[in-house]
């Protein structure tokens, strides 16, 4: 059963980055005037020597971070997903990924989670854009504890990482003891009738769907595929081999170029299996309640359940 405790994953980032900054003076936060919203206020207050605010100047922020990284710093550029992928996209490509510098891009407002803010602030294509750039890793944690752990993992490994968080509160799934490794899926439930592969704020929908299906005698494997790149190819191949090749992918991202596409690439090359993608239907969002926005795109427990059943038939 899902916890009733709701916390946005941006809070997980905000809490963990302070701990990391205290442990390592080379951890920097580069804010772009939305630090309060992205939960870096505590870091800025407690670690001012490791904090810098470039103002509303994302491109410069990415470049400054690159410069800091050449001097041994581990900067986290902190903004919203839409700006952290597109406004600074070319700077990320040229000055961070091409020279493979140790810069992390940490973004709140992933997917439809800044629901009330409307389409301008809903980053729905960010992971697709960034997974196309060599050297970049792309990660979306599923809850507060996953966010904390994956931020720590991102700091541990050398090179660019894009971390995507939710603006809106989502249920807590894990506890602080759960282990995460970038590039390795977490198996939340095992089963062989079909597989549900989800990430970010849709993992909780996968949990509900899997629990409901179990009551009907359908046992699905549920993977939290928090890392879209490098994808855990082995875990997908196991779904092909062990779950009859029936895979439903769920994501709060455009249906193109995100997790669904990444899984399809593996399945297509394997030449076996079938995938149903559930995600944003290549359309912009609007200001609306978060759950309504998900429903407009079929990102619902009901649709996951029906999609699994359709594959099994």
């Amino acid at each position: 059963m899902l916890s009733k405790k709701l916390i946005a994953t941006r809070d997980g980032f905000g809490d963990e980055i302070v701990e990391l900054g205290k442990e390592n003076k080379d951890i920097y936060v580069v804010d772009v005037d939305i630090g309060k919203s992205c939960k870096t206020g505590k870091f800025a207050h407690e670690l001012p020597q490791q904090h810098v605010n470039v103002g509303i100047a994302e491109q410069n922020g990415a470049g400054v971070a690159a410069g800091l990284a050449t001097c041994g710093k581990i900067p986290f550029v902190v903004t919203y997903a839409v700006f952290g992928s597109l406004r600074m996209g070319e700077q990320i490509r040229q000055e961070i990924c091409y020279p493979n510098l140790n810069v992390k891009i940490a973004c709140s407002h992933g997917g439809l989670t800044p629901a009330n803010d409307g389409a301008s602030h809903q980053g729905i294509e960010d992971m697709g854009v960034l997974r196309s750039i060599p050297n970049m890793r792309v990660v979306m944690p599923a809850d507060y504890y996953a966010a904390r752990a994956l931020v720590r993992e991102a700091a541990k490994i050398y090179g660019p990482v894009y971390l995507r968080f939710t603006r809106d509160a989502i249920p807590v799934i894990y506890d602080e003891n759960q282990k995460f490794e970038i590039g390795k899926a977490v198996t939340l439930r095992d089963g062989k009738d079909a597989a549900i592969i989800a990430n970010g704020d849709t993992v909780r929908l996968g949990i509900e769907a899997a629990e409901f299906l179990a009551t009907q005698g359908i046992n699905v494997r549920l993977l939290d595929m928090h890392t879209v790149k490098p994808l855990d190819v082995e875990a997908v191949q196991k779904c092909i081999d062990e779950c009859n090749g029936r895979i439903v992918v769920v994501e709060d991202h455009n249906i193109m170029n995100g997790l669904g596409s990444a899984v399809c690439e593996v399945v297509a090359e394997a030449g076996r299996g079938q995938v149903k993608r559930i995600g944003i239907q290549d359309q912009f969002g609007q200001s609306a309640p978060y759950e309504s926005l998900l429903a407009m795109n079929g990102i619902t427990v009901k649709n996951i359940v029906e999609s699994v059943k359709a594959l099994i038939k």
Binding site: Q59, G63, G67, L68, T70, K73, P75, Q91, P99
Partner: peptide, 29 residues
């Protein structure tokens, strides 16, 4: 390309971006 050529402090080529990197290096200093 700083990864290929010794002595290049930052890769450049896309115009308008090198100065930001320099600002970051100066700040680190």
């Amino acid at each position: 390309d700083m990864k290929k050529c010794p002595g290049i402090d930052i890769s450049t080529g896309s115009l308008g971006q090198g100065l930001s990197c320099g600002v970051g290096m100066a700040l680190a200093g």
